[in-house]
Design a protein around this nucleic acid. Structure first.
Lengths: 242, 242
DNA sequence: CGCACTATTGATGTATTTCAAGCCAAGTGG
DNA sequence: CCACTTGGCTTGAAATACATCAATAGTGCG
């Protein structure tokens, strides 16, 4: 059940910076729990203060904010190896919520030990900062998408970006990405209505750049897809994992 | 000309965590230059690697990204005390650009000393991470705005947010905020066209929630403004400054 | 079976963009 | 001094992208 960092299969993937045994031992010392949550569980609540810092070990999640009348914006999707909950660790409360998109496993890193990290484990502290920075760069790109891309470009940019991230993580099986998003999630991530998302998806499918059925995404021509989206950023590798 | 950290007036403001003399000395040791740039200068260039880490000492700036056909999205506005350039310090290159909106002064913090910060000055490293997190939370909110607020709400949210930030910084003079944004900047920050921004501004002015003329913004009813925008976040204080 | 959730499609309404023109103030070169 | 440009702001009209309303259909589930 419990996954020890020393025996962690995720951190062995080539995307990640490989740590020494000693470093891994430090991380293991920090890690306080290995959580398994089922699909749909909200594990960080807006405006509340209970949440810890987590590394997503398996599954997908997303961060979101919403307006008081219910309009919802997904800020970014969280994939294995990503750190989540840094803001609440620093400010004591979270301005966003986070929800498991599939069943997930989370490595819990208690925030009460967070402050001392900077004195005792500077390497790790650096990695936390690095991951926080990368997370911001993802949100930057999503803001560009929401603000300045048209509906078709938005969808293309989202798919291109997820596909590239999944590829770096070795998550593609014969080019197929198991993508647990409903059209409502896609709409909420892109700032579109559900109906318009559906119609734009239909038009895009006709262009034959990708196939998407039953949660299986295959991008057949990543180059054209990226061109359509004007999306040219690659995922950063190697990167740290905690 | 050169502003020594020990004699820095900015850090004395009540918004900021007051540091001990010793801590300030450490910051001063890190600081390598005090730059003065004129309005319009781009001091961080997308995809390039020359930029350092900076604290904005005086003036306004903004971060932006753009698509290859010229569509531009302003990611956030940078006010005195804000840290900028963290991404380039971590990744070696920047995915965004940064431009001075007014004449500005920047405290330059060379990134070659950045890594060692974590070993030698853990307090400072913590503050850097803190400021990085806050920066992300600002972008989060801007993404919510771009994705899910209508035009009038967008403008109201932007003005409410800037006004609140300025207030915490003590930048208001008799309730007047000297705001160096053109309508094009507002449009680019909100994901609107210039024309629609202008027309929406006209409609909003008719509602008498604020006045804006010649770069002087006065929010007459911040409560109503925030309600219209559904913007309820306060700026975080006290906060660190480097 | 009924219920909830997801995808789909057509019709209609509206928000926003684009195009086009004009205005004003400030700067610049003759 | 003027003629001329430039940047920012403003306005109207037309085009379009996107949202909303409404209805249907398939799927899994208690």
């Amino acid at each position: 059940m419990y996954v020890r960092c020393a025996a962690c299969p995720l951190r062995l993937k080539p995307v990640f910076v490989q740590k020494t045994e000693q470093e891994v031992a430090l991380i293991e010392e920090w890690k306080s729990d290995h959580l398994r949550l089922s699909e749909g569980t909200e594990f960080i609540h807006p405006d509340q203060s209970r949440s810890e810092l987590y590394t997503l070990f398996a599954g997908w999640a997303y961060r979101y904010k919403e307006l008081s009348d219910g309009r919802r914006q997904i800020l970014n999707f969280v994939l294995p190896g990503d750190l989540i909950g840094l803001q609440s660790s620093m400010f004591g409360k979270s301005f966003y919520g986070a929800v498991a998109l599939t069943d997930v496993e989370l490595c819990q890193l208690p925030r009460r030990k967070f402050r001392r990290l900077f004195e005792r484990m500077p390497e790790l502290a650096y990695d936390v900062t690095w991951l926080g920075s990368r997370s911001e760069s993802v949100v930057d790109e999503n803001l560009l998408t929401a603000g300045r891309r048209g509906a078709a470009e938005k969808i293309a940019a989202l798919f291109a970006s997820l596909y590239k991230r999944a590829e770096t993580l070795g998550l593609l099986v014969d080019g197929v990405l198991e993508m647990p998003l409903t059209q409502q999630h896609i709409a909420d991530a892109l700032g579109l209505s559900l109906v318009h998302t559906n119609k734009t998806l239909a038009k895009l499918r006709a262009q034959n750049l990708f196939t998407l059925a039953e949660g299986q995404l295959v991008v057949k021509n990543l180059r054209s897809m990226s061109r359509l989206a004007q999306h040219f950023e690659e995922d950063i590798a190697p990167r740290p994992i905690i």
